[in-house]
């Protein structure tokens, strides 16, 4: 395959970025999108040019490190029914001779560090505010001593699959991280162990979300449609219901 890449290059946080064009020949359709970037970087290095910086780690869709906007869609998924991270996107999804635009996540709270790498520490601040349960350390209790209803346990698990890649924020016209926050809130709110801190947690995490500089949700659903882990839009409904309920409770006053 012959591929033309137009990649966002930006030297550092303050630099003015822009698209640069690269031609690649002999691209295999079995390559993943990240392997395509590897191939480009090998060529750039051989030519003594600066390689393109991009985040990646596990390359099997479970770590949440990778993620770029491919042709205007985070992770390049667009309307494909197969939920993928960028590392799971393969070149067979593209036509021979395709021109592909590659950009970093663009959102206020995600400063661009270099090229396609963004700083997602803002997500850490939301988790630090309440994405945990407080228990004393010691021997683990007998698992069967705390029954968890099957339906709630399944919802908790579905929401716990969020890898925090940030595609939801990248896709959102408001730069909102509500889907991410909602996944974390719903995950813990569905489990017995999450109940004692449930009302304090929702207040703290919603407040941290806003203070990190993310926008508000307008219920459009771009986030859920690009999520590689298929976190449903209904999780934001759970967050809304929990927040409204929490305002009538004294936790965190």
């Amino acid at each position: 395959m012959k591929i033309t890449l137009r990649i966002w290059r930006q030297a550092d946080r303050e630099a003015v970025g822009g698209l640069q064009t690269y031609q690649l020949d002999n691209v295999s359709e079995d390559m993943s999108f990240l392997e395509l970037l590897d191939m480009l970087n090998e060529q750039l290095t051989a030519q003594d040019l600066e390689p393109v910086a991009f985040d990646n780690d596990c390359r099997e869709g479970i770590c949440g490190m990778c993620g770029v906007v491919v042709n205007g869609a985070p992770h390049g998924r667009y309307d494909s029914s197969v939920p993928t991270t960028t590392c799971q996107l393969h070149m067979r999804s593209f036509q021979d001779g395709a021109v592909i635009d590659v950009e970093p996540w663009k959102a206020g709270p995600f400063p661009i560090i270099k090229d396609l790498v963004v700083d997602r520490s803002a997500f850490d601040h939301i988790i630090q505010a309440g994405g945990y349960i407080s228990v004393n350390t010691g021997a683990a209790p007998e698992a069967h001593s705390t029954p968890a209803p099957k339906r709630q346990a399944d919802r908790a698990f579905d929401n716990a699959t969020c890898v925090g890649c940030g595609a939801c924020v990248a896709a959102c016209p408001n730069g909102s991280a509500m889907l991410f926050t909602a996944a974390k809130v719903t995950h813990l709110a569905m489990l017995p162990q999450g109940q004692p801190e449930r009302m304090r947690r929702i207040k703290a995490m919603v407040a941290a979300h806003d203070e990190a500089g993310f926008g508000g949700c307008t219920n459009i659903g771009e986030c859920a449609s690009v999520c590689p882990k298929q976190i449903p839009l209904a999780s934001i409904g759970q967050l809304n219901r929990d927040l409204i309920a929490s305002l009538f409770k004294g936790d965190g006053k």
């Binding site: 207040k203 703290a204 919603v206 407040a207």
Partner: peptide, 14 residues
């Protein structure tokens, strides 16, 4: 307070 910050949140404005 945490409660006040939640009360000033975007979700409440929504």
């Amino acid at each position: 307070s945490m409660h006040a910050r939640a009360l000033h949140s975007l979700v409440v404005k929504k």
